[in-house]
Design a protein around this nucleic acid. Structure first.
Lengths: 319, 319
DNA sequence: TTGAAAGCGCTAACAC
DNA sequence: GTGTTAGCGCTTTCAA
């Protein structure tokens, strides 16, 4: 910085202000500093910046889940990987932290940690969003639901699920849904899509509490066939649950898709490998996470309040 | 630190030395400082530490690959996720960086970056290992092959592959292997196991250059059946290649496992979902990555030169 | 609008 | 073995 300032003919302080786009600085000086910095390929030292009261050196990905073991699921790993790839160029790192679903003070602790540059909330809930400490304002983005103070980025769950359900409706009459975990507000649009499409099409509503694991899908499928034996399609809240449903149906001697069609959501790699291949909606997790990391990193900070990345119908054999 | 030192009745410098376990410090003082620090839940500020010449605040995971797109594969994501979870407690972050397979100066650049705490090399090669800059000594671990200066952590490829091949040998006579990418030295033990087991069992050697993608497995299987039509088992270098082989065999009208048994390596989640389920060897990627991160973080630094985590045979229907 | 100066919390020479 | 002192590279009051 010293060198940049000298080369631009200003003091360190002015250079700092120019680069930060904060505080007073004349437009010409500002431009000169930026040009010199560019030319010298100047990269501010994040450690020094953190020490001097700037943003920290880590982005923590705080994952709300029922158990820390959930950090090992493919979805979270993908978020971590994509974010880690994005932050590298900015000399920042990411850390992955489990937060109990109803644990208090998660954000409070993060707010006082000077080494924290920003926070990516995953699977967050409204109570957590509402407890946002002032010091964290502008340094938090949510993958999932957001609030006035917290911009959110997610796949377009509503559109993706709607597409799947329209496809199901075209060939099937009685469609059941295995719901996502009830506490997870970001998954609610998938239910909403179900209610909406079924209602509009005049189909019966057959919803069952479920979850995001194969075991949830398995249990759900068994219960569906017990309660409504004439069901001819199952929409699972995600691919894993759909895999569970398919395997349970097979064990019950129910043909997929001959007797019952099955569809999921996410298009995980395994969806292309099962037999039959799983019809589902794509979920660009990596792009969502990368966008979240960039929102935290970009100086402009022009984060739209809400970004919904498109989800596309992926047709395979199961439905 | 100031407070800790005062409470322990020593100067900041002594406290620092005691906590760092570096430099001279009397045993009693050392113990006192540690006790006080423990009680006060003192956590040194990583930014300050980095600024003052200590280790940086980021661990960069440098992945040698042929293309940056490879960073998005499940294996790398898992490494990133597991490492990110481990470093969180240490107020450090991880960053993911792609490095061209034969790109020069990768480590040189990292060595001069003060914000880098340490480096986890993934899929590294011997030339890279040999070019280790002195300043990075003791701050690099490799997931894969290592060297005198770089401790390495990996799954026990040799034992895992050997177990799979012994299993194959028990019921099959002519076993072909689809090899891993040739430039990736960490995957070589899988080939070595093949040669060894085949030779000991007096079986023909049928090796074909391959890779780690489904397309490699697909091409490999086609070529195997063309060159050696009486082959009755295929060992693919990893699960993805095995999936490709299975799908190619199915398309060729070859029954799996009836006509040809197929086995892979890694036990990715999809291996349990294909039809037939894939016989493979487990690969505790998360544990490997966590161990690598811990090796970099732990103050003791007592990293064994080489750690090989066990791989277990996972029997399913494909072989 | 700008510059000078005072730290941020820690480590590492250096003298005691 | 221990304390004193001087920074690490930046941001941010405060005067000018």
């Amino acid at each position: 910085l010293e060198d940049v300032a000298r080369a631009a003919g200003v003091s360190r302080a002015t250079a700092s202000r120019a680069l930060l786009e904060a505080g007073p600085a004349s437009t010409p000086a500002r431009a000169r500093v930026r040009a010199v910095a560019e030319r010298m390929r100047f990269r501010p030292d994040p450690a020094a910046r953190a020490l001097a009261g700037g943003p920290g050196t880590r982005i923590v990905i705080a994952v709300l889940e029922t158990s820390p073991a959930e950090l090992e699921c493919g979805y979270i790993q993908q978020v971590a990987g994509a974010a880690a790839a994005v932050v590298d160029r900015h000399d920042v790192g990411v850390a992955l932290r489990w937060a109990p679903v109803d644990g208090p003070g998660l954000l409070a602790g993060l707010a006082t940690d000077r080494s924290v540059h920003g926070v990516i909330l995953v699977n967050t809930t409204y109570p957590v969003l509402d407890s946002l400490p002032a010091r964290l304002r502008g340094r938090v983005v949510s993958i999932g639901v957001g609030s006035d103070a917290v911009p959110s980025i997610d796949v377009d769950n509503l559109a993706g699920a709607t597409a799947v359900l329209h496809h199901l409706c075209a060939t099937r009459a009685r469609i059941a849904m295995i719901e996502p975990p009830a506490w997870m507000p970001c998954a609610l649009p998938r239910c909403q899509a179900y209610r909406q499409v079924m209602t509009e099409a005049g189909r019966p509503l057959r919803m069952l509490p479920g979850g995001f694991c194969m075991s949830d899908g398995r249990a759900g499928a068994v219960e569906v066939m017990r309660r409504w034996p004439d069901t001819d399609a199952i929409f699972a809240a995600n691919d894993d649950a759909a895999f569970g449903a398919m395997s349970a149906l097979r064990e019950m001697g129910v043909g997929v898709p001959a007797d019952v069609a099955v569809a999921g959501f996410d298009d995980v790699p395994a969806a292309a490998l099962t037999y039959p291949g799983l019809t589902t909606a794509s979920h660009p997790v990596g792009r969502v996470a990368a966008a979240a990391a960039r929102a935290l990193l970009d100086p402009a900070g022009g984060v739209a309040a809400q970004i919904r990345l498109p989800s596309e119908l992926v047709l395979r054999e199961s439905a």
